[in-house]
Write a protein that binds this DNA or RNA. Sequence first.
DNA 1: TCCTTACTGCGTATTAGGTACGCTAAATAG
DNA 2: CTATTTAGCGTACCTAATACGCAGTAAGGA
Lengths: 245, 245
Amino acid sequence: MDNDELPADVALMWRLRETPRRGPKPSLTLDDIVTAAIALADAEGLAAVSMARVAERLGNSTMALYRHVKSKDDLLVMMSDAALERPEPMPDGVDWRTGLTFWADGVLTAIRRHPWYAQVPISGPPAGPNNLAWFDSALGVLQDTGLPEEAKVGVVMGLITYVQGEIRMAFDLAAGYAENPDAFQRFGSTLRRVADPRVYPAVARTVEAGVFDEVGSFEEDNEADFDFGLQLYLDGVAAFIDRVG
Amino acid sequence: MDNDELPADVALMWRLRETPRRGPKPSLTLDDIVTAAIALADAEGLAAVSMARVAERLGNSTMALYRHVKSKDDLLVMMSDAALERPEPMPDGVDWRTGLTFWADGVLTAIRRHPWYAQVPISGPPAGPNNLAWFDSALGVLQDTGLPEEAKVGVVMGLITYVQGEIRMAFDLAAGYAENPDAFQRFGSTLRRVADPRVYPAVARTVEAGVFDEVGSFEEDNEADFDFGLQLYLDGVAAFIDRVG
DNA sequence: TCCTTACTGCGTATTAGGTACGCTAAATAG
DNA sequence: CTATTTAGCGTACCTAATACGCAGTAAGGA
């Protein structure tokens, strides 16, 4: 068994630990802990996730968790892999562009169920099983483009980067919005007050054009912005495939 | 004076508070606090920034800070605006594409000086003076494209989203790398062990092609990936400008 | 069968950090 | 000179992470 060559937390995420033989039967499993922590984060936000609160949900003591998890950070890593769940299988025969759009929407949908995901730092390459499944799904869509493997990875990395940016911005902003909607509704008038045309000429022009005046639903605006940027990126990918693929 | 219509923290960031008349002269200014906090975060990471540590650096007591700052979160918001500093002025007469590339590199360079930036949640629209200056700089580059104002904002938002993704991923990953370089160097072999070709066919193909085998400098790889994705996005913008602008 | 051993759950205690509260002293307005 | 406003700060409280070690449990071997 050469599991010991794998990093410890990766082995944990893939549930590769050999089952111990002696000692009392665990009344608690890693899955229980991760599930409880996710439920708590979903219900009350990541800040509510303390070892004590998680243990309470499980009817166990705080310190019992540490038999299954190295530290709280460790738990967070497992939570974020688990929260991604599995990607929905790609519809048969989709072209790469439809596929990547489907993929990106899928990521956002999955994460919308667990908004706290945006606050968990990514600690390494996508090594958990669910993360890897998403990665695989996106790579698979590019199969028929004829791009070299390395270029496929580049395209997917760029897409992941864009989507990560969206996740971070959208969900941080949503938290800010929930806490203080005024700051958003008054953004236009704040800018009018504060954006001196001599210092911020381009912003001032945009403000004058009224771009920040119509409020619109926060989510819808965001979704539209995301799609707009995504389509720009995919246009670039299309040009690249024409050139190289 | 209608400052009171501005959100309190925005007024603070723009230093619009009316100077008080009575009471002892402050021995401490908001700038001092923000500067000290940034220096501390630069030197020891965001986790080292506690109110106590910041106060210690200033030779003051912990609670003295609360006369100038509403809460620690408040301080973080100010820190992240201040950390951005001002964008370098755009070279004269650059075309939009060169300009946006220059801009994106500038953001990354600015943030590389303050890596903890990636961990501070964005709590609202870009309302601080430095944030706004960057926003203005990017918008200004698109001046001659003939795009309507709203489309310019869309293009810049997409770029910001991509860059935010890069910031988050690159700096989180760098932290993970510093802590545990093995996880990265062995990523290829980890995948080989763990990525069952029947479950992860596309990943397996990529692994077989050896894409994850050559290690390369962590920073250089990252920079290259970022530029690759950025150019794809800008290709998309170019197509959009041809179509609409 | 019984003892050894590996393991689980958990109580205790330590450390660290955020911040409410209220006191004291300073500066200025009247 | 007195009232008012404000700065600094000591104290205290609360929450949280987690090191440490004990006690009880289930398998394996004698």
